[in-house]
Structures are given as C-alpha cells and as structure tokens.
Design a protein around this nucleic acid. Structure first.
Lengths: 192, 192
DNA sequence: GTCTATATAGCGATAGAC
DNA sequence: GTCTATCGCTATATAGAC
C-alpha cells in the first residue's frame, strides 16, 4: 500500500463523515443526533470518528461548510442566466422543487440556524454567514433590476422562503410551498 | 391549614411550572432545557416536578397549551376592531412590537414547531394545531375583505412572519422585523 | 491509521422518608 | 403534598491494543 493511497483513504472517510453529518443533522436535528448516528450513516465505527473530528461541534461545522458549498454551487449555476429577474425566479423554482424534503425536514439552512441560535458556542455565527451570503446575492439581483429598496426586498424574499419552509414542514404539506413559489414568481415579475 | 388552601397551593405551583416551562423552553430550546432548569425558574425542587407532571413531554404539552391560550387572548383583542384589514394590520404591529424577543429567541410558536418536528412523539401535531388556528383566523379576515384567494394570502402572511422571525433571530437584528412589518402593512392595504 | 473497550458526566425518572 | 437521594440509561470523549 502506497503512502498516497493511505492519504486518499483518510480524506475519503473524512468527506463521507462530513456529508453524512450534513444529511443526518438536517433529518434528525443537531441535539437528537448522536455521533453513533453519523458514524453509522457514513459506515465508520463510532470511536474512529474522533480521528477525523475532535468534537461533535467540529462535525456540525463541517456540515455548515457543506451547506455553504452547496449555496456556492447553486449561485454559480444561476449566474449563467442573463436577466436578474430570471435568476431570482429560477432560485424560487429550485426551492419549490425541493418541497418534498422541506415537508419532511424543513429547510436545511433554516432549521440549522434555528437550532444553533439556542446554543452558546460560536456556530450560530457560521450559519448566519451562509444565510448572509444568500441575502447579499439576492440583494444584488434586485439592485440590478433597478430597485433602490433592494435590501428590503431581499430580506422579504428569503424570509418568505424560510417561513413557507417552516409551514410546509409543520403541516407536512408540499403543496403549500408549490403555491407560495408561484405567488413569489409573480411578485418578482411585478417588481421588474 | 384548610383543604382549599392546599388545593390552591397545588394549582399555583402547577401554573408556575407551566408558565416557567413556556418561557424557558422558548429561550433555551426543548432539547437543551433540563427539568432542573424549569424547576429552578419556577422555584420548585427538581424531584417535586414529577408530582405535577409525569414526564418532560407533559411539560412541553403544557407549554404548547400556554401558547394556545396566548393566541386565543390575542385574537379576542383583535376581534374588537371593526375592519378586517385593521385587524390584520394590528396583528402585524403586535408581531413587530415583539421584535426584541424575536431577535434573541425567535418566534415562540415557530421555534417550537421547528424543534418538535424532529421528534417522534405526537407533540408536533399539537403545535401544528396552534399554527393552524392562527392560519384559519387570518384566512377569515382576508375572506371578509372579499378575497377569494384568502387561504393563499393567509399562508403567505403567516409565512412572512415566521421567516422574518427566523432572519431577525439569525442576525440578532430587530430592525429587520420592524422594516418587514411596515412592508406587510402596506401589502395588506394594497389588497383591500 | 483503525477499532474496541471503557471512563466520565449529565439527565430523566423513581423510591421512599417526612 | 413536599423533598432528598439515587437508580439506570445514554452520549461524548478517551485510552490504548492492533
């Protein structure tokens, strides 16, 4: 076995643990998820987790980074569209496409933000940064549409999504998000 | 000591525990709150809690009922206003008045709903019922305003509030909710 | 690098004295 | 009705064999 193979193996396990953490923490919540849950989902023995992550908090941090990466990828894809209102409507449509997940577990970022705000550690600032990045990007789109109240509109749009995610989850009804998504697309058109 | 005195004492402690539970569960979250936290907040010895509530879940249930009572009282006060759009705007203004609490701990009902949805027990249905009662009332107001899309609008309004509560909490910024409150009042006027 | 066994601590819940 | 002492379980984290 070469040295590089061992290194790649280690990296692979670390990534498996990080992505398993992101998924399981979303589905079960931070407090109800044990290290054993994450280890099982990643196919790694419990005690071995500590070779890659010193504490549970570090696993939560890795999950947040995973969400930050996902947002970055999403934004990069949306940037290919020429008109800002089309980019925003595509964002809304993307959210609506995830309505089944939202009905079962809520918005990955929103539920995490809600839970981490109840904790003393600094992880709530990390998830706020992710939410802030989304807000900034939406703000830019409204600004490019010529709106001077772009920040207020950005807050309203992201809040509408977070709120409908919570209601969709509370009532376990994906149709709520589908309807609200259509309403928001019409609202974006009305602002152009 | 008369019998009635003992009964009143018992009832008093039960109520103290229930209202302490509602407050502490909101501030710290369900999972991070211990029975010792609630007992301390109510001024009751830990072990004695079990005389009034058999399990922690029963305390959570009592907190939900406390929120349901609060909603009932709020709606009764709003019903005194003659015009439905004024009732809805007063509702929004009431939310905005609580923005400091929202910045620190989020919406009491919303954060509870988000957390309880991650649990296997039936308490998530109880909090959904409270949220449903609010939704039904808002729906009625829009209907009285002559809107045939009253349900969709009700979902949009409550979602806007839940979402802005989450953002206000995430960024610890009460101004977000103040601004969004004004925007929502203007939106309600535009629908009349 | 990998995994097992276990130390340590905290919490929900109970038993039982008063 | 009230309160103390404690049981039993579970979860994070570590020690150390391999």
């Amino acid at each position: 076995m070469t040295d590089s193979t061992r290194v790649r193996r280690g990296a692979g396990k670390r990534e498996r643990l990080a992505s398993a953490a992101a998924r399981v923490l979303h589905e079960q919540g931070v407090e109800k998820t044990t290290l054993a849950d994450i280890a099982r989902a990643a196919g790694v023995p419990v005690g071995n987790v500590y070779y890659y992550f010193k504490t549970k908090d570090e696993l939560v941090e890795a999950a947040i980074e995973s969400h930050a990466d996902g947002l970055k990828t999403l934004i990069a894809a949306l940037e290919r569209l020429p008109a800002p209102q089309d980019r925003l409507k595509a964002l809304v449509r993307g959210w609506a496409d995830q309505r089944e997940v939202a009905a079962r577990y809520g918005c990955p970022t929103g539920t995490l933000a809600s839970e981490l705000d109840k904790r003393a550690d600094g992880l709530d600032r990390a998830i706020a940064k992710v939410m802030g990045a989304l807000l900034d990007w939406v703000d830019q789109q409204f600004r490019q549409m010529g709106r001077t109240d772009s920040r207020e509109l950005a807050v309203a749009l992201v809040a509408a999504y977070q709120g409908i995610s919570l209601l969709t989850n509370t009532f376990r009804d994906p149709a709520l998000m589908a309807t609200e998504g259509r309403r928001l697309e019409g609202w974006i058109d009305s602002l152009a």
